[in-house]
Simulated assay, not measured.
Amino acid sequence: MADLKDRVKQATGDQEPPLEGPQPHDVALRDDKLAWLQGHKAYFTDALPRHVDQAHFTAVALSVMPNLKNCTNASIMRSFLACARFGLEPDGRQSAIVPYKDVATFQPMYEGYIELMYRHPRVDSVHFGWIREKDQWDYTPTEPSPRDFFHKPRVDLSEEERGPVILAWAFAWIEGRRSQVIILNRQQATQIRDKYSKAYAKAEREGKRDSTWHTEFDAMWAKSCVRRLVKVVPTSTELSELISADDDADEAGSAPAVIRGTVISRDDQGDSEQQPSAARWPETAQPRSGGEDGGETP
């Protein structure tokens, strides 16, 4: 019978995730966590919606366990149950499991919000993007939809040549009609951060500057834009509960880490400020604007 290490490789379809340090006790701790998850996976896979593949979800969960080696088993289980409840993979794109001291915390990402919007039978599609300084764009609210908004990226230029990000935008198509366009600039994102983020305020008071708003401003900026879109699309109980879970994560405080994927917060509520470690932005989401951290809460 294959040992645990081989089973993990088979489940993830790749090499076993690298450890944070070569110490033998770290290896033992990691393997213990993986064994624990294997023994308890039925608890969260049974909660998955039918459209989510259990084997794939378990493989993703196994791949993030090394980052949670110092977290309590109870908090890890609660976080995975939250992922399963919403049918979101803990891959750092749809959602993330963020270690905050010894507590694992569920945090939805912008793709998770979009995923839940798509599940509403009236929503045809959801779109998000960044406008850079040299892009062609126009927004005239008094024009009828969809002529009120236009964005054409400069595909003949590199991202650096297109200039820094100046706006985030999002909209949805609902039963063949386009929703209101949500447009958020950097100053608006900063105002949302200052007004609603408890994690940011806590980090400022403690002089740590380690909240997501400090370390990944652009991620929070994007997340805020998409969360604001929630107000103008058909809502569901599931989507409302996801917003509440996101706000609860912000209550937990802040944790230094790196986000993989754009994080979404809420325009008129608190946003979640924790990030999974050893992760990276997806190419389609990363603005790489070089500006200060950003995000917002609808």
Rank of each mutant, 00 (worst) to 15 (best):
V8D: 02
Q10W: 07
T12H: 12
G21N: 00
Q23G: 03
P24W: 11
A28D: 05
L29G: 14
L29D: 06
H40W: 03
K41A: 11
T45N: 04
P49G: 10
H51W: 05
D53H: 13
D53Q: 12
A59G: 14
S63T: 13
M65F: 05
L68V: 08
N70Q: 15
N70D: 14
C71H: 05
S75M: 03
F80G: 01
F80D: 00
C83W: 00
R85D: 10
R85K: 14
E89I: 08
E89V: 04
P90V: 04
R93S: 07
R93M: 03
R93K: 08
Y100D: 07
K101Q: 15
F106L: 07
H120D: 12
R122A: 15
D124M: 03
G129S: 10
W130N: 14
D135W: 13
Q136C: 10
Y139K: 06
F150Y: 14
F150P: 08
R154P: 13
W173F: 09
S179G: 08
Q180R: 11
N185L: 00
N185V: 03
Q187F: 04
A189Y: 00
R209D: 03
A219H: 08
R227T: 09
V230S: 02
V233Y: 02
L239V: 12
D247G: 08
D248L: 08
D248M: 04
D248A: 09
E251L: 09
A252H: 04
G253H: 01
G253V: 01
S254M: 01
V258L: 10
I259P: 14
T262G: 15
S265W: 08
Q269L: 14
G270T: 10
P282I: 02
A285I: 05
R288E: 06
S289C: 03
G295Q: 10
